[in-house]
Design a protein around this nucleic acid. Sequence first.
DNA 1: GTGAAAGCGCTAACAT
DNA 2: ATGTTAGCGCTTTCAC
Lengths: 344, 344
Amino acid sequence: MKVTIQDLAAQLHLTTATVSRALNNHPRISDSTKKAVVELAEKMNYRRNRIASSLRSGKTHTIGVIIPSAEINFFGSVVHGIESIANTNGYNILLYQSNESTEYEQKAIETFIDVRVDGVLASIAKETTDITHYLELKSKGIPLVFFDRSKDMVNIPSVVVDDFKGGYMATQHLLQQGYRRIAHITGQLHLKIFNDRLNGYKSALHAAGIEVDESLIYYGNVSIEAGKEAINYFFGMAEPPDGIFAVEDFTALGVIKAAKEKGISIPEQLGVIGFANESFDEHITPSLSSMDQQTVLMGREAFKLLLELIYEKEEVQLKKVNVVLEPIARFRQSSMRQMIVNKL
Amino acid sequence: MKVTIQDLAAQLHLTTATVSRALNNHPRISDSTKKAVVELAEKMNYRRNRIASSLRSGKTHTIGVIIPSAEINFFGSVVHGIESIANTNGYNILLYQSNESTEYEQKAIETFIDVRVDGVLASIAKETTDITHYLELKSKGIPLVFFDRSKDMVNIPSVVVDDFKGGYMATQHLLQQGYRRIAHITGQLHLKIFNDRLNGYKSALHAAGIEVDESLIYYGNVSIEAGKEAINYFFGMAEPPDGIFAVEDFTALGVIKAAKEKGISIPEQLGVIGFANESFDEHITPSLSSMDQQTVLMGREAFKLLLELIYEKEEVQLKKVNVVLEPIARFRQSSMRQMIVNKL
DNA sequence: GTGAAAGCGCTAACAT
DNA sequence: ATGTTAGCGCTTTCAC
């Protein structure tokens, strides 16, 4: 039933050592025996037991991936990028969801240590502030790369999108479209990504010679509801904004829904742009402008970075590598009052 | 640096066997030694090497999961369900994407065999017609459960949604709303799920005493484009339909987009319902009625079924178990011309 | 270019 | 309730 290298060795009157070398394409094994071994292996339907191999060699060719939830489009897309490239490089993906909880994160890391993954890719849970559990990987010599959600202070490589630039570009776009009183709906500011977008917004205003008006910044919790609340707040003002940059697309969706209810026309009366390029953006009415975070590329880059770390184990891992991806503007109806836009 | 049970055994003047048993909570080990072992393990920061454990025991506590793509919402959601319950049961998920290709599927299965997963959950790639590569798992004694996309002929347990019933319910709903000339846009009919939905459609018409009109069935390829093409076809007819049941939501989306362009009012002039309950459904205008496939539940049920098979290895695995989940109707604006509907 | 021997860390018979 | 012994299947020195 189960064929091992011992069976192959016996049949060929070789030792298991030689068979193992032949299967691993060892340079000092003659081509003839290699051929014989490989052929017999195929004929006998031999399959290497990777558990045994891993135990001896210490390599599992498996990497652990922690995401908040596979249900979130964004992370599904990143995982898609990771798995594709990992696969072509002979690595497998062990998938864990943190559900935004530090406790689950901790469990994942312990499991990864137990199964001796060769490396870990992770996006930090919203709940997590202290990341010492991640540092345990380091102490065990397991390379770690953060993607999307990372921590600034620590010396861990990461792949993120340039949120500052994204915020800047989004705001600049609204300015170029002739909007002048531009508001921002932000998110939990202890998360760097939201903070960066806010700063990009401010910076774009400065660059245009417009003073930041704190009353035009609404502090929300990143949800459809937050967008609706923001509209209520803004359109209760004596002088409401004529443009809104929302920190992400669900917030922007709330803005659009509430604006419709109030009879505020988009993009004529109010320009709207979000962030994330969610799949619904192009299907709603009006279609929603947004900043694409290059999710699949992010996954690929994160894996490539991790792979480098895996191979350079011995060398200085202290160099701080941070890959920063350019956000890509996706301008649609919700913010385009100056051009003819593709009909829905 | 790395602590093994030998270190624990030495410190406590016990054998590795006893330590192993203590750590595994073996019934015949005294509470006192258990306590001592566990405490020392914690103190020395011991972590079981699961590779070694797996090699010896033959169990990896890992299951392989094959999905077409993590980028597809539906599968992300199912994976969410699988991972959650697997995790609470002490199982890890090895994730593979088939990209709808038989070749990748084959690779995934070989890998799963090599790493000795305890079981496999899979959704068959669109391209795949011959599933003998899946049967290899069986021959190696690795349990397999299909979810969503399964094959009827073979004797493999599966968890699917009742597509026939879903098609029936969707069509029936349109009838109840007073639509009389109801069309259907179908998909690749070699896939059972699409075939079942078509039959549900036909059956609902029969039950209402309406003859099936073949000219009202459009054969599409499951895409936004297919929906648009279908509208062109239907509204080129002398007597166009007044209701459309689309085989899934992207097709329905195409219908809505094309209808808007043609000035066909929804739901007044044309009722539309899709299938899948995609996340965009409730955000488009008009919001799209659809049939929910209970994705998270599907993942949970699939795992539970697999777990049973893993534990019953020796027993007859020949019984054909097919869990069929009820689709859940999500009626929204696109099909509701008789009731007052929540505004967007 | 191949063999001999050891061992990765754990678990499971079989003892007692 | 614990010890003895063996071995899961592979890789890897160290020989020659």
